[in-house]
């Protein structure tokens, strides 16, 4: 079965001063795909998503989403086009309640009127499992709930592509399963997902396809079982 191409990043390059954080990294993600991105610390994973979501501007290459060129578009424009992301370190709107946190993307990205916000927000919180926290101050949530809020807020933008940046780091293994479960359900609803993760068990189980970055370069790409046996990947992770 061939699926339509959703995201097409070509030779994306990003430099910080003399340091090359991304060196001509290309990836293409298909509609509905579960896509994994792994690599050691500092390999450029987060830089890559920053370039896709627009919080950083790439110096070279280009990124096409649904046939439209993203370069030069601001992050909020990309969000409205259907690219959502969660943050590695949760960034809740701390002065607001959990539900109010969702009101922002609902109003600004999904075009919900003030009256629909509550209903739609609660529906999302139900699916994520945060409904009983709706009225709580978002700054006071537990780690796992903050991660869930990140995903809920991303959901509220009504994305076609969700980039999950280490949503499971530091969680217990039941909590990891909890988050995985949420991501699987989102994917069943037709949302394409790029997962950046250090927890191998989770990425391997989740992803249909994986790319591996090391020192700003793509060193491998393939199905999880191919990646596990790739000598180059082993070297990147274990050193020479």
């Amino acid at each position: 079965m061939t699926r339509e191409r959703l995201l097409d990043a070509r030779a994306v390059t990003k430099r910080f001063g003399g340091f090359v954080a991304l060196d001509e990294v290309s990836l293409d993600v298909e509609q509905g795909e579960r896509f994994g991105m792994i690599g050691p610390n500092g390999s450029g994973k987060t830089t890559m998503i920053n370039c896709i979501s627009g919080t950083l501007a790439n110096d070279g290459g280009g990124i096409v989403f649904k046939g439209a060129m993203l370069d030069g578009k601001k992050p909020h424009e990309r969000t409205r086009l259907g690219i959502a992301r969660s943050f590695q370190i949760p960034k809740p709107f701390r002065s607001m309640t959990v539900l109010e946190n969702l009101a922002i993307p609902l109003e600004y990205a999904s075009g919900a009127g003030p009256r629909e916000v509550e209903e739609r927000g609660m529906a999302i919180l139900e699916t994520i499992g945060l409904a009983d926290r709706a009225g709580e101050n978002s700054g006071k949530l537990t780690q796992i709930d903050m991660r869930k809020l990140e995903l809920a807020r991303a959901m509220a933008t009504e994305p076609e592509l969700l980039i999950s940046d280490e949503a499971m780091a530091g969680l217990s293994s039941t909590e990891v399963d909890d988050i995985l479960d949420i991501l699987f359900r989102m994917n069943e609803r037709g949302i394409t997902i790029i997962m950046i993760e250090h927890i191998m068990r989770a990425v391997m189980r989740f992803s249909e396809r994986i790319v591996v970055l090391d020192a700003g370069r793509k060193i491998a790409e393939g199905r999880p079982d191919e990646i596990v046996n790739d000598p180059e990947v082993e070297r990147a992770y274990l050193g020479e």
């Binding site: 919080t55 992050p75 969000t79 992301r85 922002i104 999904s110 933008t157």
Partner: peptide
């Protein structure tokens, strides 16, 4: 509260 998060939420 958080400018980057706001921008990524469509603001």
């Amino acid at each position: 509260d958080d400018e980057v998060a706001a921008e990524c939420a469509g603001v």
